[in-house]
Amino acid sequence: MKNALITASTKGMGRATAIALAKEGISLALCSRNGNDLDAFKNELLSINPGIKVFTSVSDVSDKQQLIAFAKGAENALGPISIIVNNAGMYEHQSIFDDNDGTLQKQINTNLAPAYELYRYFGKKMKDAREGHIFTICSVASLNPIAEAGTYSVTKYALLGLNKVMRTEMQPYGVKVTAIIPGSTLTDSWKGMEVDKDKMVLPEDISSAIVNIYKMSAGANVDEIIIKPAYGQI
Rank of each mutant, 00 (worst) to 15 (best):
R33N: 06
N34Y: 10
N36L: 12
D37G: 05
L38G: 01
D39I: 07
D39M: 09
A40I: 01
L45G: 05
L46G: 09
L46S: 11
I48Q: 11
I48R: 01
N49K: 04
N49I: 09
P50M: 06
I52C: 13
I52H: 14
I52N: 13
T56G: 01
T56L: 06
V58H: 02
V58M: 11
S59D: 13
S59C: 15
D60V: 04
S62E: 05
D63P: 04
K64H: 01
L67Q: 06
I68T: 13
K72D: 14
G73T: 14
L78R: 09
P80V: 06
I81D: 07
I81S: 03
I83P: 12
V85A: 07
N87E: 04
A88G: 02
A88K: 01
G89I: 01
Y91C: 10
Y91E: 08
Y91Q: 04
Y91T: 08
H93L: 05
Q94F: 00
Q94H: 08
I96K: 05
D101F: 01
D101Q: 14
D101T: 05
L104S: 04
Q105I: 14
K106F: 10
I108A: 00
N109D: 15
N109H: 06
T110K: 15
N111S: 11
A113H: 01
P114E: 04
P114L: 12
A115K: 05
Y119Q: 00
Y121G: 08
G123P: 01
K124R: 04
K124F: 00
D128F: 12
R130P: 06
E131G: 01
G132A: 08
